[in-house]
């Protein structure tokens, strides 16, 4: 049994990770690793970078085609898509956030990992308000594949 089946925490080896060049460009990391009947990400992608064999299959992302627009982050019902872009020593992570209070642009929040543990401070760069608010944070690039939530 995989760890995610027992604990609900994905490990990096469970994911299809982009290479350095893709990360510089900024791409979507789809943390959807269990077959469930769902496909809005495929319809939402403007560059047809996401594909699925059928509605129950896992989404496959072509990092060459992904332009990091974030449409899939907004539509994923499972809140399982994150944008990651590496700029020099920093990583910009765009994630869905459905709690109050909302973070303020320019403020400092705590970045949390997949277990909800605080890993570092993060600067809030952008807040696109909605019922599912889309937040972009900046943090040291070594946490690019760890930080998946924030604590305001």
């Amino acid at each position: 049994m995989k760890r995610w089946e027992r604990e609900g925490v994905a490990e990096l080896e469970d994911l299809n990770l982009p290479d350095e060049e893709h990360l510089k460009k900024g791409v979507a990391i789809i943390e959807c690793i269990q077959e469930i009947p769902c496909n809005p990400c495929v319809d939402a992608c403007p560059t047809k970078a996401i594909s699925m064999e059928n509605i129950n299959a896992l989404p496959e992302i072509d990092y060459d085609k992904c332009v990091g627009c974030g449409k899939c982050v907004e539509v994923c019902p499972g809140l399982a898509v994150f944008l990651v872009k590496v700029v020099d020593d920093f990583a910009l992570i765009t994630l869905p956030y459905e709690f109050l209070p909302l973070p303020e642009e320019g403020s400092i929040v705590k970045a949390l990992n997949r277990e909800g543990k605080e890993i570092c401070d993060a600067a809030v760069k952008k807040v696109k308000k909605g019922k599912t608010t889309i937040v972009t944070i900046e943090l040291p690039k070594e946490y690019a594949m760890e930080a998946r939530n924030i604590k305001v």
Binding site: W4, E7, G8, A10, E31, C32, I36, N113, R114, R148
Partner: peptide
Amino acid sequence: PKIGGYFVHAAKVRRCGIPIYT
């Protein structure tokens, strides 16, 4: 011994810090 619901739902609560004791 394992989580019965969808992984994505489990991941959402785990990254908020809620433990799941199977």
